[in-house]
Each structure stands twice: as structure tokens, then as C-alpha cells.
Amino acid sequence: MPEPILNIDRLDAYYGDFQALYGVEMTVQEGEVLAIIGSNGAGKSTLLRSISGLMDNDADQIRYRSEPIGRLRADQIAKKGIALVPEGRQLFPSLSVEENLVIGGQVGRKGPWSLDKVFKLFPVLEERRSVASTSLSGGQQQMVAISRALMSNPDLILFDEISLGLAPVIIKSIYDALPGIVGEGMSAVIVEQDITKALSVSSRVYCLQEGRVSLTGLSDAVSREEISRAYFGVEQ
């Protein structure tokens, strides 16, 4: 097996006195799409925040291309090639659509993604490039959030609940764009509430329950029963 792009080793995470993650172990292989599922409060977002440097961890708990990055700040990690599409989109309201995209590219990494390429992926953004990001619809904002992450030309992209609060038709169009994104050789981690969606786009799946990994497996091999047991922690 080749060396994983990301290796998480016995990761604990805390919010003050509250422990959100307990000894999480996880690997992401080069070029794969990994799904993380779990109920609200299972620690999915905390895991992504830890990887992207928004939470402080021990250096060795997170290794990216064999390099310990647990202690690095988010901006340092972004420069190394990990990008996060945060939950709730979180565009910069004071910046126009185009500025939101350009600031993503400011990380200064070379690669296939540029303003032109992003506009080809989501043509509607080109039409609305100079408007305030807050005047976009929810789906369009999500396109900006994804594009903003792509503009940094990451090697590993993390998606946090990208379908949350969007109409099904919008979700479909965003997921339809996904193969075009990860087809560029990027690795991806997708946190998703919609289990069917998560399994259909990923090769492997991790389930979190109360801060612990409760299930891992190949996305097309795990059974419904296994998932509901891992998801809710009870025999059904």
C-alpha cells in the first residue's frame, strides 16, 4: 500500500473541558474520496477543523505526507495544500464574489485551478462576479465556497456538509460537479449527513459516534445494518 497523504493517529480534541474526539485513527490515500458520516455532534466538523489547523492538536497526531502538522496554524496548513470548504459556506460578506475567489488563490500554490477554470465549472459565478457575495442564493454561495477552496490548488480538499440547507436540485448539480473536481488527482474528504449520497461518491467510509470511530469500510461493501449500528450505537 502506498504512503497515505494524510495519517491521523490517536487524535483527541477538546473544547475547553469538553472532549470532542477520542483517539480517532484515520488515513486518506492519495487520490481517493473518503466519506465521514455520523449524527449531529459526533465530532465530524471537529475532525475537519483539526486537520485544517483551526484547532490545536499534538504535532504527531496529524501527519500530512509524513510531516507532523498538528501544531501548525491554519494558514501554514493551507499553504501546504489542504483546503476546507467550511460548514455553512462562510463567505466573506465584505468581499465581492470575485474577491472571495481571488483571496482563495492568494495562498500562492501552482496548479490547474484558476479564475477562468472555476468560471467554467460554475458559469453562473462569472455572470455575478462583481456582486456582493451576500446577494447570491444559497446554492450559488456554496459554489463560491467550493471554488474558493479550489483556487488554492489543494492536494487534499475537505468538504463539510456542503448539501446542508440546499434544495435537492442544487445538491445534485453540486455533486455532479464533484468528479470533475477530484478527477484532477486531488484527494477529498467529504462530511455528509445524507448517507446514500456519501456512499455513492466515496470509495471508503468512516462513521463517527460520540467522538470515536465506530465503523470503517469500503463504501460499496458496508451494509445498512452495520451503518445504523455505528451511527446510533444501538442494535436495531
Binding site: 489547523g53 483551526l54 496554524r73 491554519a74 494558514d75 466573506f92 465584505s94 468581499l95 483571496i103
Partner: peptide, 20 residues
């Protein structure tokens, strides 16, 4: 742009490679 981004949301600005 960096000023405005950091003013809007410090965490997300960090994700853009900006050291606040």
C-alpha cells in the same frame, strides 16, 4: 482584501493562508 477578510471572519481568513 486581506484586511476585510480578516475583519469578516478570522478563522476562515486563516484558511485562505492569511496569518491574522
Amino acid at each position: 482584501r486581506a484586511f476585510r477578510a480578516v475583519s469578516d471572519n478570522q478563522d476562515i481568513a486563516q484558511l485562505m493562508g492569511l496569518n491574522r
